[in-house]
């Protein structure tokens, strides 16, 4: 055996360098992800509050979850949110992607412009919406001017109108985001198939159904799961549109708004907020796992 083991300092360095490189990220993983996850579960069984508390209270928080009318409202809002967003944000961005796919002059400008609502903060967009939809805003003002309505439509002060306003905002803001995902997927649809179909006399509509849609079927599934998850996690849109109130009687809130509400102030209750967080985890974990699997398959 002529092979000699690496000298000691070298071996040390081989062990040391990788860990030196990953140490910051590993620390972040532990401190800001692993530990808070464990702590969420622990806190859910206590009455911890911003000031004091912290005694073990068994299943009290979960019993409260089951009888919480606000949570029931929030879950219903989320389901409606999801059911409306799902078809719109699965289909419209695909059509948009097809529109911007062909590299005609100026297309880079249009792609960037269509992505603008995505890079704007949800707060900015919701503030614009709340001006446009307010009692004296553009939509009501114009409709009254035309004489379609006599009284302003209470877009921001009626529960379901508020939810639907937030949905329209979400769809509008999400179009460009999912468009980009489809755009990237369209690049993988075999061009030969399009050409062959065209030679066989298939028009654009038939090519869409018979070539494009099957080609991006996995992406459509991926997008729809992403839309579903983000609908369950909605916060800023509803919060800002309702001016932090959650609408009349707080009935237009989302689950995340409830979590935020219990994070501070007089009603602050870390224990109950943690139980709500676990509810959020339970309703999102299925789609999230599916998402991860779809991603790995796509990769």
């Amino acid at each position: 055996m002529t092979y000699t083991a690496p000298t000691r300092p070298r071996r040390l360095r081989r062990l040391f360098t990788p860990w030196a490189l990953v140490a910051p990220a590993a620390l972040w993983l532990l401190v800001f992800n692993v530990w808070p996850s464990i702590n969420t579960i622990v806190l859910a069984f206590t009455n911890a509050k911003p000031l004091g508390g912290g005694h073990f209270t068994g299943l009290d928080n979960f019993a409260r979850v089951l009888s919480d009318g606000q949570l029931a409202d929030a879950l219903l809002n989320s389901i409606v949110f999801m059911l409306v967003c799902l078809p719109l944000l699965t289909v419209l961005p695909l059509l948009l992607a097809i529109l911007v796919e062909k590299k005609i002059p100026g297309i880079a400008f249009f792609r960037t412009a269509f992505y603008t609502p995505v890079v704007a903060s949800a707060v900015v967009v919701a503030l614009i919406w709340s001006w446009v939809l307010s009692d004296r805003g553009l939509v009501n003002g114009f409709a009254q001017w035309l004489g379609i309505i006599a009284e302003p439509v209470p877009f921001l002060t009626e529960r379901w109108l508020l939810v639907f306003s937030a949905i329209s905002l979400t769809v509008w803001k999400g179009l460009g985001y999912y468009m980009i995902i489809y755009l990237s997927a369209l690049g993988n649809v075999r061009r030969e198939l399009h050409e062959a179909a065209a030679v066989d006399g298939a028009g654009p509509v038939r090519r869409f159904w018979n070539v494009t849609v099957p080609g991006v079927r996995n992406t459509m599934l991926l997008v729809s799961v992403m839309v579903a998850v983000s609908a369950l996690r909605v916060f800023s849109e509803l919060f800002v549109l309702s001016n932090g109130t959650g609408g009349p009687g707080g009935r237009a809130q989302s689950v995340v708004m409830l979590i935020q509400m219990y994070s501070r102030g007089f009603y602050g209750h870390f224990g109950y907020a943690s139980a709500l967080s676990i509810v959020l985890l339970v309703i999102t974990i299925g789609p999230m796992l599916l998402l991860l699997r779809l991603n790995r398959k796509a990769a």
Partner: peptide, 13 residues
């Protein structure tokens, strides 16, 4: 697979 909002309270703590 963990939405950030789930751990946001504990992160704050």
């Amino acid at each position: 697979v963990l939405p950030g909002e789930v751990t946001i309270i504990s992160q704050y703590i």
